[in-house]
C-alpha cells in the first residue's frame, strides 16, 4: 500500500501512522447531553466496508496529517488531502 502525500509524493505506507476515522467532530463539553455525545464521539464507529475517510500522519516524512479515502475491502486509495484543508479533526 502506498499513499500519495500532497507534499512528498507517493510513499510507502510504512512511513505513515494511522489514527482512525476522519470527520469526527469533538462535541461541546458544555452541552446538556455532553456525556452521551462524548460516548458516541469517543467509542462508536461506522466501521464501513467500502470507501472510508480516515486520518494518517506522515511520521516518516513531512509530518502532515492527511485525510485519506481508502476502500477497506481492497485497500485502494481514491483521494488524499491535507487534513487542515479539509478541516478534519
Amino acid at each position: 500500500m502506498r499513499i500519495k502525500c500532497p507534499y512528498c509524493g507517493e510513499r510507502d505506507a510504512a512511513e505513515f501512522a494511522y489514527l482512525g476515522a476522519a470527520d469526527l467532530k469533538r462535541p461541546d463539553p458544555g452541552a446538556s447531553e455532553a456525556a452521551n455525545v462524548f460516548f458516541d464521539y469517543v467509542y462508536l464507529r461506522d466501521n464501513l466496508a467500502g470507501p472510508h475517510a480516515e486520518l494518517w500522519y506522515h511520521a516518516g516524512g513531512c509530518r502532515s496529517w492527511l485525510r485519506v479515502v481508502r476502500d477497506t475491502r481492497t485497500h485502494v486509495i481514491s483521494n488524499v488531502q491535507l487534513a487542515k484543508e479539509q478541516g478534519s479533526g
Binding site: 462508536l44 464507529r45 461506522d46 466501521n47 464501513l48 466496508a49 477497506t72
Partner: peptide, 18 residues
Amino acid sequence: GNSSRVAAMAGLRFPIES
C-alpha cells in the same frame, strides 16, 4: 470481523473497528 456490517442491518453501531 464483520460485526459492524451485520449490526448495521439492525440499525446498531458498536465500539468496534475491523
